[in-house]
Nucleic acid binder design. Structure first.
Length: 961
RNA sequence: GGGUGAUUAGCUCAGUUGGUAGAGCGCCUCCUUUACACGGAGGAUGUCGGCGGUUCAAUUCCGUCAUUACCCACCA
């Protein structure tokens, strides 16, 4: 092994070794148990970010663990075409490079360019996965627009259509003007913007008729005056006394002179605006509902690009064109963007004296999540999936516990959302995606099928009738919702599908529970039935991870310039390169300055290479139940340090065990006090390891592995074993056996989290242990070590070693107090009350001599005179170290007094309890016993402390004062 | 407005079937002893968000308030 741990030198090679040997492949043989995870397919829009790396780590830990448990294991990998996101990013690219928008560029060319983009992205993303160590089944990788995937999508669309679950309807929906597509509610994000509210006078019709003089109005507040072009009613609250008298009357809409009724509806809020609200069903989500309630017509005045039409389109409440109103729109508004039209309208209204006032107002504006443009609710014809029944079934399987969330509290979120779910709008006006498998003839009859040929045959349509394919594509989440079964080969009914579906666990962020997880559950329940026609679930468990933010808790985003690329953590990056990456595409100078300062603060010297193992270990450590994870480089550093420690300890063990005269022999694993101790500790580790894995507590898992290896194995076992190797020639074989054995077992325990370094070291030591198998990946998770000693003697062993540790720690402490140099050998004197401990000392004093640099140990009788010393007592032993010098003594007196004070407080606390009659009456006997025992211990301790103080003070007084 | 979580050491977070609390990082002191300074040894640090209730006992259970984060709804 190289002297220094440099992850770069080992990781890539090991990954190739695993992959080439097919270790990631599931077997086609029948196994007792199967284990499968389907990876949430990353979008092809860009690289994997920290969140991906985090989730992949969790998945790989589970996959590797289960593989090592001897299960037939599959981690399914693939990519998502990500409709809107990809189309946007490529569109932007084309605009930048070719100065053309996509309409100028052309559909065919555009699609071709996206495929090229996909190829590039795929390469990058898959490379990242390899660097992270993802043990995925590469041969089965799949893309959501692959031919087979498309076939499945079409087939499922057909089934849903046949079952009357899919319908097309004109409804109001969120329209993205920039992308010119409908988007779902979930893709709309709200922002608070300071804007204006305008108050406009709507003349009352009855008054006009009477006096020909506009002097009575109803005043309406609106932030979107242009929508008056689509007004069909004014609503007031039934409880609002101010407007009671006007109910049933009519007003005239300014500019278009449309006569519309005043109606009552609970939507009108007495406290908001003027209390009456204009109703524009074609351009407002709430008004749409009011329109349906009151069977009002819908007037659409806006084109899909957000400009004002020349003539309004008028529909009845069912969406059927009517002529109940004039389609007149003032000429001077034609063709203008709705925001410009707004200004023009205000101007004109002022002119005709119908303007009342305006005021500043904070508006909660809807924006497209992707395009970042203001969303206009619009009447459009879209395809919907009826999810009424599907959602109920999905709620059932979670309620039954067939699917469970980890952590559990996400179930509440899931239920409340699923209960209020609307029908799913599955069509999008995009080019990149699955075309909806629908054909129309010239009179808009609808035909469903997977291609035109089949449809003509099926419906017996002659060739002279022209069929036109639906232009819309399906929402990305439609194909994603089929991911678990289609990716496994549902269409072809493959062996793999039959073996591994339903999958075991889905690992995902909470941000896509509604987008994706809920839909997967619904679709799978609908499509997949077992032999008894019982619906199948897509996965048994859902592990929800937190989202990774920067160390202040902000989301990592390119525009904030706080992104950390997982590959940069693995390979390292200089400060300058990091800055370059972070300010790329950012033009605002202040922002650049800010990013620079922030980066300087957190990564003053860039990032040094950490390696994939350290990164993975850090993710495991951070994976608590928290929703937001404050990610910090320090954690990765401490994890890298752990890997280095593992590396160095292995070098030491290799040094010890690759000697010519030594041969590993597992049978001679005889338990000396030390070997027995580490075996017991190891067994505790294994038990906890399994427990935490069962609970999906990877943070605790990482913690106990670290604790065992550092605090037990390195700090005590290896250190103490040195004295055996030096001193006891008979036992050194056993010690070498044990250290090798424990190391090898530990490597297997740690492998799922830190696969590279464990494999590397394992390859080095396997020869020494005569292991012929190829890889640690396919070894088994270690079981507890069989210990022949009785439980009692195990307990005793733990006690003895902990006693030994106490003495050593105490000696070290005293040494520091006295300011002895570390390697200055000191004589110590002991007074021992307990004969058992006396025995212990005579047996194991060589440990002390080596590790605590003791020159000699003299055991005194109770009455023997003691040289001038500072004293410590541990259990039933008094420990004396002879000293000279005033300062030490003074220091020691202060320390002792402090300890005495603390001890007295502790004793008081317990005594108070024991005096309390209620406590004695009601507390369980065990608790009382425990407290009593503790009191005795504390009191003993106190008396010893007092005695020490006495001795020291005496010494102090006699000698110097 | 409806909902869900969080509040524990300077920071990031664990924990307790109720019996005065832990880790990592940071900080202080000492040590370059042949596995390891990406190390070792030792140390300091907390009215466990406030108030009230249940209980012999509350950081833990219940109520309430405060702060904070997020989810859903919301363009008068």
């Amino acid at each position: 092994m190289d002297k220094a741990y440099i992850p770069k030198n080992i990781e890539k090679e090991l990954y190739n070794f695993w992959n080439k040997n097919g270790f990631f492949k599931p077997s086609k043989r029948k196994y007792k148990k199967n284990f499968c995870i389907v990876m949430p397919p990353p979008n092809i829009t860009g690289n994997l970010h920290m969140g991906h790396a985090f989730q992949h780590t969790i998945m790989d830990i589970l996959v590797r663990y289960n593989r090592m448990q001897g299960k037939n294991t599959l981690w399914q990998v693939g990519l998502d075409h990500a409709g809107i996101a990809t189309q946007m990013i490529v569109e932007k690219n084309i605009l930048k490079k070719k100065k053309k928008n996509i309409f100028e560029y052309g559909v065919k060319k555009f699609i071709h360019t996206i495929w090229k983009w996909k190829k590039k992205s795929e390469k990058k993303i898959y490379n990242q996965m390899r660097r992270l160590g993802d043990s995925v089944f590469w041969e089965n990788k799949i893309f959501t627009l692959d031919k087979n995937f498309s076939k499945s999508v079409k087939k499922i669309f057909n089934n849903l259509y046949k079952d009357n679950l899919i319908y097309k309807r004109k409804k109001i929906s969120n329209w993205d003007i920039k992308l010119q597509t409908v988007i779902s509610d979930l893709e709309v994000k709200y922002k608070d913007i300071s804007g204006k509210i305008f108050y406009i006078k709507y003349p009352l019709l009855s008054y006009i008729n009477k006096t020909q003089n506009f002097c009575k109005y109803i005043i309406i507040g609106t932030t979107r005056p242009e929508t008056l072009l689509g007004d069909v009613a004014i609503a007031v609250n039934p409880k609002d006394v101010r407007y009671k008298k006007f109910i049933g009357e009519y007003v005239v809409v300014p500019l278009v002179n449309r006569v519309i009724p005043i109606i009552i509806d609970k939507l009108a809020n007495i406290d908001k605006g003027t209390g009456c609200v204009k109703i524009t069903p074609a351009h407002d989500l709430n008004d749409y509902k009011v329109g349906l309630r009151h069977k009002l017509p819908m007037i659409n005045f806006m084109k899909n690009n957000g400009t004002v039409r020349n003539k309004a389109k008028i529909y009845d409440f069912n969406g059927i064109i009517t002529t109940c109103y004039s389609s007149y729109i003032p000429k001077e508004l034609h063709g203008y963007d709705r925001l410009i039209a707004r200004k023009k309208i205000i101007k004109k209204i002022k002119k005709i004296n119908l303007f009342h006032s305006s005021s500043k107002h904070i508006i909660h504006l809807p924006y497209g999540d992707r395009s970042n443009s203001i969303i206009e609710p619009m009447l459009t014809n879209q395809w919907y999936l009826n999810v009424g029944l599907l959602s109920k079934k999905a709620i059932q399987v979670v309620k039954n516990g067939n699917i469970s969330f980890i952590p559990k509290n996400y179930e509440k979120m899931f239920f409340s959302w699923m209960k209020n779910i609307n029908d799913w709008c599955i069509s999008r006006q995009l080019w990149w995606g699955h075309r909806i498998p629908i054909w129309y003839d010239s009179i808009f009859n609808v035909y469903v099928g997977s291609n035109e040929k089949i449809i003509r045959k099926k419906y017996n349509i002659p060739n002279k009738i022209i069929l036109k394919k639906e232009n819309d594509v399906l929402d990305t989440w439609f194909s994603s919702s089929l991911w678990t079964f289609v990716s496994l080969g549902w269409l072809e009914n493959t062996k793999i599908f039959n073996m591994f579906h339903p999958t075991n666990i889905l690992v995902s962020g909470f941000d896509i529970i509604f987008f994706w997880i809920s839909k997967m559950i619904m679709m799978t329940l609908y499509i997949i039935k077992d032999d008894n026609y019982i619906s199948n679930i897509p996965f048994k468990k859902i592990y929800i991870t937190g989202l990774i933010g920067d160390d202040e808790g902000n989301k990592m985003s390119k525009s904030k310039g706080n992104v950390v690329d997982p590959l940069d953590l693995i390979d390292g990056i200089t400060f300058n390169d990091l800055i370059k990456k972070r300010v790329k595409n950012i033009t605002n100078k202040n922002k650049i300055e800010k990013i620079f300062l922030n980066t300087k603060k957190i990564f003053p010297n860039g990032i040094s290479p950490m390696g994939a193992d350290a990164l993975r270990l850090s993710f495991a450590k951070l994976s608590s139940n928290n929703r937001y994870i404050h990610w910090n480089i320090n954690v990765v550093e401490s994890c890298r340090n752990f890997c280095t420690k593992l590396w160095n300890a292995s070098i030491f063990i290799l040094m010890q065990t690759s000697k010519k005269y030594y041969k590993f022999d597992q049978l001679s694993l005889k338990n000396s006090i030390l070997d027995l101790w580490i075996s017991i500790k190891f067994n505790i580790l294994v038990k906890k390891y399994k427990k935490y894995l069962k609970q999906y507590r990877f943070d605790l898992l990482a913690q106990i592995l670290n604790k065992f290896f550092r605090n037990n194995f390195c700090d005590w076992y290896l250190e103490l074993s040195k004295s055996i190797i030096i001193n006891d020639k008979l036992k050194k074989y056993n010690v070498r056996n044990t250290m090798l054995f424990i190391l090898e077992s530990f490597l297997r325990l740690a492998h799922p989290i830190i696969p590279f370094i464990t494999e590397y070291i394992w390859q080095k030591i396997k020869k020494l242990m005569f292991i012929k198998r190829k890889t640690i990946m396919l070894e088994s998770i270690p079981k507890t070590i069989k210990i022949t000693e009785s439980l009692n003697s195990q307990k005793k062993n733990l006690k003895n070693i902990s006693f030994l540790k106490k003495i050593i720690i105490c000696l070290r402490k005293m040494r520091l107090y006295i300011n002895f140099k570390k390697n200055f050998l000191i004589p110590i004197f002991l007074k021992i009350e307990n004969p058992e401990i006396f025995l212990f000392f005579s047996k194991y004093n060589f440990f002390l001599k080596k590790i605590a640099y003791i020159k000699s140990i003299t055991i005194l009788k109770t009455d023997d005179l003691v040289p001038f010393s500072i004293v410590q007592s541990i259990d039933q032993v008094q420990l004396f170290i002879p000293v000279l010098g005033v300062m030490t003594i003074k220091k020691e007196i202060i320390r002792l007094k402090m300890s005495i004070k603390k001890m007295i407080l502790k004793i008081m606390y317990i005594k108070k309890k024991l005096i309390n009659s209620s406590f004695m009456r009601f507390a369980p006997i065990i608790v009382i016993k425990k407290q009593k025992k503790q009191l005795i211990e504390f009191e003993q301790e106190l008396s010893k402390l007092l005695q020490q103080l006495k001795i020291i003070c005496k010494f102090n007084v006699n000698k110097f004062y």
